[in-house]
Amino acid sequence: MSPSPELHVVESTDPLAVPRRVALVRPDTRPTVRRGDERYVMTFPHLIVREVILFQAVVIALSLAAIVFDAPLEGIANPIETPNPAKAPWYFLGLQELLHYFPPIVAGVLLPGLVVLLLAVIPYARINLTAGPLWASGGKRTALALAAVTAALFALFAVFGCWPIAVPTLLTAAAMFAARGGARGGRLRRALAQVTLPEWIMTWFVVIATLLTVIGTFFRGPGWAFVWPWSGAI
């Protein structure tokens, strides 16, 4: 490959600009743009066949699950007898676990509402469009702000005794600090160094949501007391 001509690339910082590809075709090459992703294939059969395979795979997997595992059915509903513990479907058990720590207005209305609102505005928040790697700008101020926010959040959740949120908060912050200057580190740290602030926040949220759901599903027994899943109290 012959050396490329000198080019000055000016990167646009405007996130709303529609990206446009410009190809530089040197005279010693054939005038074809050789970016792999610009290759098009016919939808039929290439995509349609894959869709059919996906459909079949999902249906087969679900059918096998339906043959092997039976859907639960307990005794008829009885308004005077509360089962112990009374559990919601699994995707609400994170919420039910929250109810254990916070007053219902916070855990049942405020926090879920906030989560839905924050999810809905993601594409309209500028930070999600522009954010670069967290530590891109060296970041003494970033480090200070991060430490302050972490301490505040940790204190808030610790006051309520909500360790399933407080501890992951600390761990996430630790991972964020570990990513600092990771560009020269090993593979894992190099990958961490590329993570943006919104991605860190989402990761934090996912870790907490998963942890709360797992605790609520497997580690809660009668009276919503902590049990080990193998103690058979579920």
């Binding site: 639960p72 059915l73 307990e74 005794g75 008829i76 509903a77 009885n78 308004p79 007898e81 509360t82 089962p83 009374a86 559990k87 919601a88 479907p89 995707y91 609400f92 919420l95 039910q96 109810l99 219902p104 207005i105 855990a107 049942g108 209305v109």
Partner: peptide, 29 residues
Amino acid sequence: LSYTGYLLPWDQLAFWGVSVGTNMAKEAP
């Protein structure tokens, strides 16, 4: 959808899952 379907079998699981969930809604100001 999943939540409304959860009540339909009308077993203990369904009844109490939905009772707890709808009591949560009650807390909205």
